[in-house]
């Protein structure tokens, strides 16, 4: 699977950059929305990876820190051309965002005092409220499988509503809690199985 040579293959790096630039430029919304796009560009056309591997990258990309798109780009770039390949692929992926947002940032600061622009954004914020609500419902369905999950949700929600914590602590506490609960329950299950036998 790994074709890492000793010499730097500039042609391959350029190809990597262009391919991920394309992916970065046409994937709206991110997440699983970009999977078909990646399959077409990277697996079908370039044969750099397989559909199965892509799904694995996605699964791991979701449970490692950072943006999934960036994680997937790192995987493929690294497997093809080592550490340099990983950086080039990620750079290609984020280049369209860098260009588009820099232009928008310039535009927004110049035109944000216009009344109709302000009205448009007031309307858009309502749409954003709908989109975030939808994202939360989706995550609830895929991530909260039992009562303990629901309790963790409620506790985190109320604590964050009342106090302002850095999310860093919440993330660490949740990871520790998950490990503790799973360990406790598997130990208990093993014991009870032992008793039955």
């Amino acid at each position: 699977m790994k074709k890492r040579g000793k010499k730097v293959d500039f042609k391959l790096l350029l190809e990597l950059y262009i391919a991920f630039f394309k992916v970065g430029a046409i994937t709206f919304g991110g997440g699983y929305a970009m999977l078909p796009m990646l399959q077409k560009e990277l697996a079908d056309k370039k044969k750099w990876t397989t559909n199965e591997d892509l799904l694995d990258y996605f699964a791991v990309g979701q449970c490692t820190p950072g943006v999934i798109a960036v994680n997937t780009a790192t995987f493929i770039g690294y497997n093809l051309a080592g550490v340099l390949g990983a950086f080039v692929a990620v750079l290609g992926m984020v280049s369209p965002s860098l260009i588009i947002i820099s232009i928008i940032a310039k535009f927004v600061t110049q035109f944000s005092h216009l009344e109709w622009i302000q009205n448009a954004f007031s309307g858009i914020r309502v749409a954003v409220a709908v989109l975030v609500l939808q994202a939360v419902i989706k995550m609830w369905k895929s991530g909260i499988k039992d009562k303990i999950g629901a309790v963790v949700f409620l506790i985190t929600f109320s604590v964050c509503l009342l106090f302002s914590f850095s999310p860093v602590y919440i993330v660490i506490a949740a990871i520790v809690f998950g490990i503790a609960v799973k360990k406790f329950f598997t130990d208990k299950n093993n014991n009870s199985e032992g008793e039955v036998k």
């Binding site: 449970c63 975030v132 994202a135 939360v136 995550m139 949700f153 506790i155 964050c160 993330v171 360990k183």
Partner: peptide, 23 residues
Amino acid sequence: QASFYGLRPAVTALIAIAGVEVF
């Protein structure tokens, strides 16, 4: 896998809080 068991509901709650802000 165990870390995700705790992490997923907590992250959902964090995003819900962000949703409250937007709301």
